[in-house]
């Protein structure tokens, strides 16, 4: 048995699959493709599958990572194609390789978002957005298990820029902290809705583009 890291995309209709459902779906993809993976021992064995960072439902990604253990005679090169043949729409495996790094070293996530404004995009809007995120702190109400808590999300947003895409759409490029704390890019829109409703988008969606080391290099 040896470790195998898979890079996969979760886009389009697949973005609505929850993390829990994704685990079942993955398990079945491996069975269908005939790629044996190691299972945990015990009463209720389940596949040993470690996801780098769970992706929230309704968010797309082109850089998801999952570690599994495969038979020694499996070839890394063939695995992605074999899995893709047996995957639902929107789940696409891009690479398989022996992992040399640890998920705990993922420091940031680069995400791109689309902010849709129903006919309200202007130069002025872009400035307002940029200025908002230049503030020293952005305190929003966050639901936790112990009720609603004030949370400053500013430290979680390392970089953010806004670009006009068309008359209705602003593109957002953000680098957010991946762990300690994990910053969900959706919070960018949430913060606007809460604190600056004038410039809050009518609809927003994000896609994870890359996972990044502390030093800014791409994690793989």
């Amino acid at each position: 048995m040896r470790k195998c890291r898979l890079v996969f995309e979760k886009t389009g209709r697949a973005k609505y699959i929850s993390h829990l459902d994704l685990m079942h779906t993955m398990e079945r993809i491996f069975v269908r493709a005939g790629v044996d993976i190691v299972h945990t021992q015990g009463f209720n064995p389940h596949p040993y599958m470690v996801f780098a960072l769970p992706l929230s439902v309704c968010t797309e990604s082109v850089c998801e990572l999952v570690d599994v253990q495969i038979e020694d005679d499996e070839s890394f090169d063939e695995i992605p194609e074999r899995l893709n043949e047996k995957s639902p729409e929107g789940i696409k495996f891009k690479k398989a390789y022996e992992p040399l790094t640890k998920f705990k070293d993922i420091a940031y996530i680069d995400a791109e978002g689309r902010f849709e404004y129903d006919g309200r995009v202007s130069e002025n809007l872009l400035d307002k957005l940029s200025n908002f995120f230049k503030k020293d702190e952005i305190v929003i109400k966050k639901k936790t298990k112990k009720g609603i808590k004030d949370t400053d999300i500013k430290p979680g947003i390392t970089d953010i820029i806004f670009e006009k895409a068309d008359d209705n759409t602003v593109l957002v490029k953000a680098r957010v902290t991946a762990q300690n704390p994990t910053t969900n890019p959706d919070l960018i829109a949430t913060a606007l809705r809460e604190l600056e409703p004038d410039v809050a988008p009518d609809f927003s969606e994000f896609m994870r583009m890359a996972m990044v080391f502390e030093d800014g290099k791409k994690f793989s």
Partner: peptide, 16 residues
């Protein structure tokens, strides 16, 4: 609307 509803995966198709 999908982000607003429970279990959106059941409304989109795209299954294997």
């Amino acid at each position: 609307i999908l982000p607003k509803v429970q279990k959106p995966a059941r409304y989109v198709g795209g299954e294997y």
